[in-house]
Simulated assay, not measured.
Amino acid sequence: MSRKLLPLSITAAFMGGTALADVPNVAVDIAPVHSLVARVMEGVGTPDLIISPGASPHEYNLRPSEAAALQDANLVFWMGEGLTPWMEGAVETLADGATVTTLLETDGTILLDFRENALFEAHDHDDHDDHGHDEHAEDKDHEDHSDEHDHDDHAKHDDHDNHAETKGHDDEHAHDDHDSHDDHDDHDHEDHADHEGHDDHDGHAHGDHDPHAWLSPENANTWLNVIAAQLSAADPDNAGTYFANAAAAREEMAALSAEIAETLEPVRGGSFIVFHDAYQYFENAFDFPASGAISIGDASDPSPARIAEIQARIKDEGVKCVLAEPQFNPGIVEVVMDGADANTAVIDPLGSDLEPGAALYSQVIRNMAQTLADCL
């Protein structure tokens, strides 16, 4: 007896209750945000990651598959121009007609002023609520920053310079041309090969505020609902799944924050210095301020005078830990550490070595906390 085959869209509707053909195409800029979107879409679909893990968000040449993902997108989620200034033009030209969500501009997002003096002011680690630095307006207390939401984007970027050995997107991304991802010398997409006007890393060419807002779990919580709402508007048939996933992810985020607080508690009060000032959202979320940063700008090496200042601070304050990043020159940290009695470790705010997907965000935060605790 012959049997008539159902159309693909109807067949999909009987598989897990989801009509896969109707699921929107979603493109996301960086891996931690991609992870949040992937978590909300679990059981329904998979978003595309635009910036390869480990690559610099600030300056990036789109591969053909990534440009295609933007062109095909119904929804785009990105941090904003403060982190990826080049992507604004890409979104406007390639994702024309897509619904674009700029997370740094969404209601409820905590935004912190960028600390102009990346040496920071000396912290009283026993009393984080009373730093007493009223005369340094640009270095306000971390707690004050968390209460103010009058901020916009900043040019401070995770400038992870050409982490050439970045792995291609995982199988979730389903692009036919992923075989070409290893060829980093062939990124010649005509619309994005140039980055004129984005060379001023030390200046605040893209705003006066820190764009590394994904390092706040509270922001992640806010964005989970934003993501679910946008997906539901585009795909109302799966709205229940999106909001249920977002609610479950918020519970997971609360558990993660409690876990991180427990991890950091034994070393609370320990002083540490970071390579560049990208971590104040994490510091603020867990009341664990850094003593300073080696580099003022993402793209420039610190001057000999600045290295001398950092070396003096390490000795004067008894800094216990100096944190490097996998994408920056390790030799600079070695120079800073010359003669210092402190530990070093590598911290990664983007999860360069992690598999992209729903679990990545929590693992990034967990790894950062554990790295800091071990170093201290």
Results as ranks from 00 to 15, higher is better:
residue 2 S to T: 11
residue 11 T to K: 15
residue 23 V to L: 06
residue 28 V to P: 04
residue 32 P to L: 01
residue 35 S to G: 10
residue 43 G to N: 09
residue 55 A to C: 10
residue 56 S to N: 14
residue 58 H to S: 01
residue 58 H to Y: 00
residue 61 N to P: 01
residue 62 L to K: 05
residue 62 L to P: 01
residue 66 E to F: 02
residue 66 E to L: 02
residue 78 W to K: 05
residue 78 W to F: 13
residue 80 G to W: 06
residue 82 G to Y: 05
residue 86 W to G: 05
residue 93 T to I: 02
residue 96 D to E: 14
residue 102 T to E: 08
residue 103 L to G: 02
residue 108 G to Q: 07
residue 112 L to S: 05
residue 112 L to C: 06
residue 123 H to K: 13
residue 124 D to V: 14
residue 129 D to L: 12
residue 137 A to I: 01
residue 137 A to H: 01
residue 140 K to A: 15
residue 142 H to R: 13
residue 148 E to V: 15
residue 150 D to A: 11
residue 152 D to I: 15
residue 155 A to I: 02
residue 157 H to F: 11
residue 160 H to E: 13
residue 160 H to W: 15
residue 160 H to A: 14
residue 164 A to M: 14
residue 166 T to L: 00
residue 168 G to T: 11
residue 170 D to A: 13
residue 171 D to N: 15
residue 172 E to C: 03
residue 178 H to Q: 04
residue 184 H to F: 05
residue 189 H to G: 10
residue 190 E to P: 13
residue 198 H to L: 11
residue 201 H to C: 12
residue 207 G to W: 09
residue 209 H to V: 05
residue 210 D to G: 05
residue 211 P to E: 09
residue 215 L to S: 04
residue 217 P to E: 05
residue 217 P to L: 04
residue 221 N to Q: 13
residue 222 T to I: 15
residue 225 N to P: 07
residue 227 I to S: 05
residue 231 L to I: 11
residue 232 S to M: 02
residue 236 P to V: 03
residue 237 D to E: 12
residue 243 F to A: 07
residue 245 N to C: 10
residue 248 A to Q: 08
residue 250 R to S: 07
residue 252 E to C: 10
residue 258 A to M: 02
residue 259 E to H: 13
residue 259 E to G: 08
residue 264 L to S: 08
residue 264 L to E: 06
residue 265 E to T: 00
residue 266 P to V: 03
residue 266 P to I: 04
residue 278 A to F: 00
residue 278 A to T: 01
residue 281 Y to E: 06
residue 284 N to C: 13
residue 288 F to Y: 13
residue 291 S to F: 03
residue 292 G to R: 09
residue 297 G to V: 11
residue 298 D to G: 13
residue 301 D to Q: 12
residue 302 P to H: 05
residue 306 R to I: 11
residue 311 Q to T: 00
residue 313 R to F: 01
residue 316 D to H: 14
residue 324 A to I: 06
residue 333 V to I: 15
residue 334 E to Y: 10
residue 335 V to Y: 00
residue 336 V to L: 08
residue 341 D to W: 00
residue 341 D to K: 00
residue 341 D to A: 01
residue 350 L to C: 02
residue 350 L to Q: 07
residue 356 P to S: 07
residue 362 S to P: 00
residue 375 C to S: 03
residue 376 L to A: 09
